[in-house]
Design a protein around this nucleic acid. Structure first.
Lengths: 136, 136
DNA sequence: TGTAATTCCTATTAAATCGATAGGAATAAT
DNA sequence: ATTATTCCTATCGATTTAATAGGAATTACA
């Protein structure tokens, strides 16, 4: 299942994208409207800023704003930052590959075979969806 | 990520399917060959038996065997038993639907929109893979 | 210049989940 | 009888997740 971190992060990005203008949006406003714990959201937005999706302005009238256009923000990238690997097992992960300690031979592993298909189909969805798409 | 329970369960089903004959296969044999904790595997096979994938024979020379042909065992069914919902959020789950406590309106939720696509593409993979397919 | 409002940062905690283990009961083969 | 197996329930330890706490730094503006 999707972590709440990812879910809230996506909702926050959507919220900011839907506002359209480039004025900073405050954590409190997002938290209130999306029914998210403000402190938890704070840490999520921090992550999104540090990974280059959001910019921030400090102090009074501060907040977060998108650095790129929503149409340029791919779900693959957002998901990898918030949720981590897209693959369901690390031995089929493109960006977070790790060998399984059990499995001596990936080629003959049935789980491997199945999970490659799942990875590819999921990747296909994330590659074809930008923040603009899901914000419509 | 996929739980080890699911991973081991799939490996065990594959192991049994690959043996071909209908002789009961013992937990110990599977655990040893697939490098799985025997006790943990025991509980997984129990689950698979209770949900109708495996039959068992008790006592000496006992073990587990497939109840249906590998070509009749769909990954959708196995995954739902071992891993639970295929959907990444319960509000898009076909078999385990639950409303999100935050989200007041699913139709306008960006996460919902994205996760429906992921669900459908994943489902598509699981529906087109049987135990026979992944055991090849 | 001071005050209020905000982000920034680190640390901690509470709860849930996961993977594994323990130990013995029941059953079947020989 | 003895041995080998599944069956069942309970529990534990580690990890992860979601949330909270508290204060530092920064900015707007009266």
């Amino acid at each position: 299942m999707l972590s709440k971190k990812t879910k809230y992060g996506l909702k926050a990005l959507t919220y900011i994208a839907r506002k359209g203008d480039n004025e900073p949006v405050q954590i409190g406003e997002i938290a209130k409207n999306e029914h998210i714990s403000q402190k938890f959201l704070e840490s999520i937005l921090l992550t999104l800023r540090k990974s280059g999706f959001l910019g921030s302005k400090k102090g009074k009238h501060g907040g977060y704003y998108l650095i790129k256009k929503p149409s340029e923000i791919l779900m693959t990238d957002v998901m990898r930052v918030l949720e981590g690997p897209i693959a369901l097992v690390s031995c089929v992960s493109l960006n977070f590959y790790e060998k399984c300690d059990d499995c001596p031979d990936e080629a003959s592993c049935s789980v491997h075979k199945l999970m490659i298909q799942v990875r590819d189909s999921t990747l296909n969805v994330f590659r074809h969806n930008t923040l603009e798409d899901i914000s419509k």
